[in-house]
Every structure is written in C-alpha cells, then in structure tokens.
Amino acid sequence: MEKAEVAQKIYELVEKSIGKKKLKSSDIQKQISADCGISRDEVKEALKDLVDEGKLIYTYFGGSFVEIPPKE
C-alpha cells in the first residue's frame, strides 16, 4: 500500500473519531495495521508525515493524543 494511501486512512480514522473518542498514536497504529494488513512501522511513518505537514497534531489531555488541528 502506498504511503499516501495509508496517510489518508489515518486521517479518515482520526476525523471519524472526532467527538467520540480521542485516539492515541498506538490506537491508530493498531487499527490501521490490522485494517490494511501492513506493519505498524509503516503506519508510524505515514503518521509522522501527517504530523510533520501539520495535518494532524499531538494534544495532551491527561495523556497524549493525535487530533486534527482546530480551524483558525
């Protein structure tokens, strides 16, 4: 699976969870690697790109989570 495709899956998963559940990085890695049949390292790499591009951010609310940045 292409890295961009994995990144898209991650973004959709985070988007879908808004208002329902805050996702930890490990939740995303487990979910996407199971859904797509790829290694967790591949998910990690795609997630890293999304964070570096600013499409996703880390937040802290009693634990570290991955979320979509708030609109300005």
Binding site: S25, V51, D52, G54, Y58, Y60, F61, G62, S64, P70
Partner: peptide, 16 residues
C-alpha cells in the same frame, strides 16, 4: 495545563 500547544512535528517538550 495541557491542550493543543506545541511546535510543528513534535508531540513533546512544550507543556501548555
């Protein structure tokens, strides 16, 4: 404390 502040690409090192 906590929240969404940080620097691009990092999830650590800044405590809001």
């Amino acid at each position: 404390h906590g929240g969404i502040v940080g620097v691009r690409g990092y999830g650590s090192g800044i405590i809001g």
